[in-house]
Simulated assay, not measured.
Amino acid sequence: MPQGPVKLRYEFTYDGGGIGKGGQVQLRVNGNPVAEKRIERIVPLGFSADETQAIGMDTGTPGSDRYEGRFPFNATIEQVKFNLQ
């Protein structure tokens, strides 16, 4: 990541056609694409009651038993936007 203020953008383009389908993901840094990946399936409905919409640190259940620590983000997050279409 570059030093100074950075604008991160995560774009998920859903395949459509029902719930739990896949899509294409793109990560952009300051408007420039830096990574792209296909996700074959997403979680179709919901999560457990202890999951949150964590930003800056994951405080819910880890995705794997091998995951240790919380690894908090130690900078300033000035704004978070969700654009659902």
Results as ranks from 00 to 15, higher is better:
V6D: 07
E51S: 02
D15A: 10
S64W: 06
R28A: 05
T61Y: 03
Q24D: 14
A49G: 06
Q79L: 09
G46S: 14
L8C: 08
G69F: 03
N32H: 08
M1Q: 08
M1H: 11
Y67I: 14
G46L: 00
Y14M: 03
D58Y: 13
L45S: 14
E40W: 07
A49R: 06
E68R: 13
Q79M: 06
F47Y: 13
E36K: 13
V25Q: 03
T52I: 02
P72A: 08
M1F: 09
Q85E: 15
V80C: 06
P33H: 05
T13D: 11
G60W: 02
Q26M: 15
G69D: 00
Q79F: 08
G31F: 00
G23S: 04
I39C: 11
L84N: 07
Q24S: 14
R9W: 00
D15E: 13
D15M: 08
A75G: 15
K7N: 14
I39W: 10
V34H: 03
F47K: 03
F71T: 13
G46E: 04
T61A: 14
Q24R: 08
D50A: 07
E51C: 07
P44C: 03
V80Q: 01
K7A: 12
P44T: 04
M1E: 11
V80D: 01
D15N: 09
R9V: 10
I42K: 08
M1I: 11
V34P: 04
R41Y: 08
R38Q: 11
K81Q: 15
L84M: 05
N30Q: 01
N74M: 13
Q79S: 09
P62G: 04
P5T: 13
P2W: 02
R28T: 12
G63A: 12
G69P: 05
Y10L: 10
G60L: 04
G46Q: 05
D58I: 07
E40R: 12
R38W: 02
T61L: 08
L45Q: 12
V6M: 08
S64T: 07
R28M: 14
D15Q: 08
K21A: 06
A49F: 10
E78L: 10
